[in-house]
Design a protein around this nucleic acid. Sequence first.
DNA 1: AGCTAAACGTAGGCTCCCTACGCTTATGCC
DNA 2: GGCATAAGCGTAGGGAGCCTACGTTTAGCT
Lengths: 186, 186
Amino acid sequence: MPLRADARANRAALLTSAARLFTDQGPDVALDAIARDAGVSIATLYRHFPSREALIAEAYGAEIAALGEVDLAEGTAADALTRWLARFVEYARTKRALGDLVHALPEGSSPPAREVIVDALERILAAGARDGSLTTDQDAQDVLALLAGLWTLPDGPEWPARAGRLARFVVAGLKSSDSLTGQPPL
Amino acid sequence: MPLRADARANRAALLTSAARLFTDQGPDVALDAIARDAGVSIATLYRHFPSREALIAEAYGAEIAALGEVDLAEGTAADALTRWLARFVEYARTKRALGDLVHALPEGSSPPAREVIVDALERILAAGARDGSLTTDQDAQDVLALLAGLWTLPDGPEWPARAGRLARFVVAGLKSSDSLTGQPPL
DNA sequence: AGCTAAACGTAGGCTCCCTACGCTTATGCC
DNA sequence: GGCATAAGCGTAGGGAGCCTACGTTTAGCT
């Protein structure tokens, strides 16, 4: 059965407030603040979103879905990776709360957001293996771990430059498989 | 003036308890629990260590100091980097709380632990620039950001393998400067 | 033994998280 | 239109953790 009209409105208000406050103040805003901003009580927030993560996930649903899309049509898989990473970096810059979803350390159930992203990376890596433009030495989870640094970078005027170097480093390393062979175990 | 005898004993007890609880239960143990374990009150803990970070820093002082040491005597700078990273990875595995020190996002004052590590990496990179074994495309902070993934990896039986791949990837990328030139801006 | 400053613990305020419970109101039916 | 009902809501409060003010204890010196 569909939600009641007031419930639907409250839900929407919560998502709007959440998106704004997460973007403005980071992933650790008090949930009470979000509820107050939306003009509802904290209980209503919990009724609609059982956890902070659930709220972030829905507030940034569009971005997560966008990261699930991979454009393999143009150029090599390495090109596709570069394009995908550009979007990833842009979200990391503007939607810092996404980091909590992507790199949470859940015992069993990792959040669906993470699954979507790992999935996208797997498709890119698989395409790279087919067209030979990417190494097969790292799996999607490895790549995601390498990108974790994006969320630890202090924001400021240097952020884009540093993030860009980080992303380029990852792409470059995934391109050349030769330099990785014959490494002594660490 | 030196500390009073009881203060010295309490301090030592706190550090012992902290090291054990941080290792056993992760970086987020309640400070009250550490104080209780050491047989002192929470106020005493705060008197000796003004913040959680200060406590971690002292509890893991030996490890941090060890990461400040760089052995450039044998082999190339790239070899030195590999050796240093092996130690870094080992600490990341056994002393998960160190991550909070290394990748905290302080506005102004980054903790001294981070400085020590950045310093060590800078010396290695400088040596690499001199002997030509490492690229100059990334600075020490970039490298540290790349290693952030170590702290987000879920611990489990796969941890060492994944961490090893991550570290090897970083070393490999820092070795070959050629594959990084001429990249289009992301 | 007695003095004093160093060190201590208790107790409590603050913030945030989360839930139990009783009230309000949208919605479908007559 | 009015009313019954369950869906939805807010209040109020307990719990955990952080941190501090303040009065008490005690080590160390004479």
